[in-house]
């Protein structure tokens, strides 16, 4: 029989696991943990859980591990992240994307060569969570910092982890030119259509009509233009190797997202140039929605405008191409 183990101390009570479970085996308990969150609990009988991992994949806080019917562990918390609990709000998908990046680097055997660059924004403290060498960069400048690091140490695996204010607004020039030079780095770009850390202001990616503290009547596109589709914008450049857009709003999409992020890092490991993955992400706090409403909003309000998929990838190389280092 399969089972799950819920780490009550780290649970933020977002309830994403409850929605994720295909058999409806998780519910909120009466227990409030030390940090003041109402923790979830397994409610089914032991034989019902198959250890499918979807709850663990949905959890932004690495609070769940799973085992299948044969007692084999199907989801293990990655060692690519530190044990420090994140500061992210309940239901924020930063935690999901952190996990995916760490798992991918582990699975590809790249952790020991990895250098990450944290931005300014909600993920400013990412250096406390990623369990390898990390920079913290100035607002928007992470791609330039990554350029310097990768050029100085070509054998390392360098990536930036940036939000939409950081990358698409103040750092617009740096990302454009880093992509166009074809720097051999990977960029993970979280698009949650809002400024998170400063408390919910309009971002270049904010949806038309979306209310923020600086677009209190809804984003007026006559005045502020339409949201920037960064993945498509960068895809208009000839140089970059790989550009894709995925979403972290639910478990199913997170699994697909992981494939994209893995492909992106694989390109870098193979010596190919610039790889970029945009991730549709949630901001329940500043959107004024519950975690699960926020996930639904990504699907309902963002995905049509920001279509998912691989937008650019290298042409099939001829069989005679020389092997990459």
């Amino acid at each position: 029989m399969g089972y799950i183990r819920i780490e009550r101390a780290v649970c933020k009570g977002c309830g994403r696991c409850i929605i994720a479970c295909p058999k409806d085996l998780i519910e909120f308990s009466e227990e409030i943990n030390e940090r003041g969150y109402q923790v979830v609990t397994y409610k089914g009988s032991p034989e019902e859980c198959g250890g499918c991992t979807l709850c663990a994949v949905a959890c932004p806080d690495l609070g769940i591990e799973t085992w299948n019917n044969r007692g084999k562990q199907t989801f293990t918390v990655t060692t690519g992240l530190t044990e420090k609990m994140t500061h992210y709000c309940p239901g924020c998908t930063h935690g999901v994307v952190h996990r995916i990046v760490a798992e991918v680097l582990n699975e590809l055997g790249l952790i020991g060569r990895a250098i990450g660059v944290a931005p300014v924004g909600c993920s400013v403290l990412a250096y406390e969570y990623f369990n390898f060498d990390m920079f913290e960069a100035a607002h928007g400048r992470a791609p330039a910092v990554a350029t310097g690091a990768k050029r100085a140490r070509p054998d390392t695996i360098v990536f930036t982890y940036q939000g939409d204010g950081d990358l698409a607004s103040i750092g617009g020039n740096e990302i454009l030119h880093t992509a166009n030079r074809g720097e051999k780095i990977t960029v993970i770009f979280l698009n949650n259509a809002i400024y998170g850390m400063t408390g919910g202001q309009m971002a270049p990616t904010t949806m038309p009509g979306q209310r923020t503290t600086t677009s209190p009547f809804g984003r007026d596109v006559e005045d502020t233009g339409m949201p920037i589709k960064v993945a498509e914008l960068l895809s208009s450049l000839t140089t970059p190797a790989y550009i894709a857009r995925g979403s972290a709003h639910d478990s199913k999409h997170s699994v697909r997202l992981k494939k994209m992020i893995k492909t992106a890092f694989q390109h870098q490991a193979d010596g190919r140039c610039f790889s970029f993955v945009e991730v549709l992400s949630t901001c329940p706090t500043n959107w004024g929605l519950s975690p699960n409403e926020a996930s639904a909003w990504v699907a309902d309000a963002m995905m049509d405008y920001y279509p998912l998929g691989v937008i650019k990838e290298p042409a099939k190389e001829p069989a005679t191409a020389p092997a990459k280092a």
């Binding site: 960069a137 100035a138 310097g148 990768k150 050029r151 100085a152």
Partner: peptide, 26 residues
């Protein structure tokens, strides 16, 4: 050696930040 013509002085100094942070003279 390595030569990069940056897109701006803002980028140049941040490339320096990145390179210096990896322990090379830049």
């Amino acid at each position: 050696g390595t030569f990069v013509q940056a897109e701006s002085e803002i980028a140049s100094i941040n490339m320096i930040y990145g390179a210096a942070g990896t322990g090379v003279k830049c």
